[in-house]
Nucleic acid binder design. Structure first.
Lengths: 123, 123
DNA sequence: TATTTCCGCAAGTATATACTTGCATAAATT
DNA sequence: AATTTATGCAAGTATATACTTGCGGAAATA
């Protein structure tokens, strides 16, 4: 039922991203959150549950209410994952080397007159 | 079958994240990529297809091969989404105001002697 | 006390997801 | 020409996902 559940999966859903956006501005109880969506309260509640499991929000009981708060720090995992490629961007992509190598030529007709070495599987 | 398909959903799967990581270092053909995984070639191929649809990779025909290249720029959407909350981190979270307000008190016993105003739905 | 509000639990459904295996085809290699 | 290699297409399956509706209970309000 609830196998893989990480931050990346949590933010995959647009509803959950919107919830995070809402809670980033102000903590709210469940019903208040679901006011922002067309779907049923239960549906929103389920999204909240998932976000909680992924440690992106915390829930605090306040009387009969449950106040949801965003724990934005835990978006760091995502931020850092994308960040790692940022290095490549500024370096104009190492992979770009390959692009240039290949795109400047036509596909080989035979193995003899190939303009460049074909990619070979080392196995 | 293929309804919602965006970058966030694309990177939700760990296999696809790994593929992006691989292609960020070096462009590869399909079989080469699938060498890095336990699953079948077809399974990997499907992930590639999804990544392509989300514009995270491009595929270039080279003879009988199909060379996959990462288009890391399009991770910007994710990067920026997380970035927007970075502002809040440095500001120690506006929402933190709420946390302090609420956590310092017990839940109200009656409506009379509530230590603070309860959250009210404006409807 | 009666009523409303906030919320969880549970059952049910339709579609999506992540795989698999088998077969077919075009392009290189021998 | 025969074989290997790279890949696509299609069918099939199990589980996950994103919802719904209905019921019940605890807490606040009138």
């Amino acid at each position: 039922m609830e196998t893989r559940r990480d931050v990346f999966q949590a933010i995959a859903d647009p509803t959950r991203r919107k919830i995070i956006g809402l809670l980033a501005r102000q903590s709210m109880n469940l019903n208040r959150i679901s006011d922002n969506f067309e779907m049923s309260r239960q549906a929103v509640s389920l999204h909240i549950k998932i976000l909680q499991e992924c440690n992106l929000i915390t829930i605090r009981k306040y009387g009969r209410e449950r106040i949801c708060e965003a724990k934005l720090e835990n978006l760091n995992e995502v931020h850092q994952w994308t960040e790692q490629f940022g290095i490549f961007w500024s370096q104009k992509l190492k992979a770009l080397k390959h692009v240039v190598e290949y795109t400047s030529t036509e596909p080989p007709k035979t193995s003899k007159n190939r303009p460049i070495d074909p990619p070979k599987r080392n196995k």
